[in-house]
Simulated scan of single mutants.
Amino acid sequence: MELMIGGKLKQLRLDKKLSIAELSRLSDVSTGLISQIERDLVVPSVTSLWRLAKALDTNINYFFYEEPHEEQLIIRKGSHRTIVTHHDSSFYKLLHTNRDDRALDMMVITLKAGYTYDKKPLCHEGEECGYVLKGSLTVYLNGKDYVLHEGDSIYFNSTLPHKYINNGDEDCISIWAMTPKFF
């Protein structure tokens, strides 16, 4: 899925009667990056997009939402929504439907070798649980690095500052569950 969220971001910002500078202050995302996102010149990190959504009183799914065709219980192979960010360095395959009443996100995250999820750690309400399927993943959590290898899992409270780093020479593939819904 190619992200073309600039128009949605700009329209929501204007609906809230916010300048780019005001949105920058509320979201801790630079004015330059917001301007580039609104013109679809860059694809933001998931963290930046989450910060913008939070500042605009919505959730990140607002930028990806498509009207559901019908009640969907099963998503067949090849039909999962995949969000690609950071110039093809991170891939988020969403394992859940777009239902508004769901409380849980499930996804497969692929981080390319040498890739960092975001520069700044993220804090938010909820819980996260991840399992490494392939490669290795460093989880920076509350000031400490935890290195996970194939078959390792981690569970933590999302209010602790955290970010994900692939210091390895191969892509890391992991599966994650998180609350509240992020996408």
Rank of each mutant, 00 (worst) to 15 (best):
M4F: 14
I5A: 01
G6A: 10
G6C: 08
G6F: 01
K8G: 00
L9D: 00
L9Q: 02
L12D: 00
D15C: 11
I20N: 00
I20F: 04
A21M: 10
E22F: 00
E22D: 05
L23I: 06
S24Q: 08
L26T: 02
L26S: 09
L26W: 01
D28I: 13
V29C: 03
T31L: 09
T31C: 10
G32H: 08
G32M: 11
I34K: 02
E38K: 07
R39Q: 14
L41A: 14
P44A: 07
P44M: 03
S45E: 05
S45R: 01
S45H: 04
V46N: 04
T47W: 02
S48T: 10
R51C: 10
N59E: 15
I60H: 01
I60K: 02
F64W: 01
F64P: 00
P68I: 09
E70P: 07
E71A: 14
Q72N: 14
Q72M: 15
I74W: 08
I74M: 13
G78C: 12
H80Q: 15
R81E: 08
T82F: 04
I83N: 01
I83Y: 00
T85Q: 13
T85E: 09
T85A: 14
H86K: 14
H86Y: 10
H86Q: 15
Y92K: 04
Y92I: 03
Y92C: 04
L94H: 03
L94I: 12
L94M: 15
L95V: 07
D100H: 13
D100S: 14
D101H: 13
D101C: 12
D101F: 11
L104P: 11
D105K: 05
M106L: 13
M107Y: 02
V108E: 15
T110W: 03
K112F: 07
A113G: 12
A113V: 12
T116Y: 05
T116M: 06
Y117H: 12
D118F: 05
K119L: 13
K120Q: 15
L122A: 06
C123N: 11
H124S: 05
E125A: 15
G126H: 02
E127N: 14
G130I: 03
Y131D: 05
L133A: 13
G135N: 03
S136Y: 07
L137Y: 02
L137P: 01
V139S: 03
V139T: 05
V139Q: 00
V139D: 00
Y140M: 10
L141I: 09
L141A: 09
N142R: 07
N142M: 08
G143S: 06
D145E: 15
D145F: 13
D145S: 15
V147N: 09
V147S: 08
H149E: 15
H149V: 11
E150N: 13
G151N: 13
S153M: 11
S153E: 10
Y155T: 11
Y155P: 06
Y155V: 10
P161E: 08
K163V: 06
Y164W: 14
Y164L: 14
I165P: 00
N167Q: 12
D171R: 03
C172D: 03
C172A: 08
I173R: 11
I175G: 04
W176V: 04
P180G: 05
P180K: 04
K181H: 07
K181P: 12
K181T: 14
F182W: 06
F183M: 07
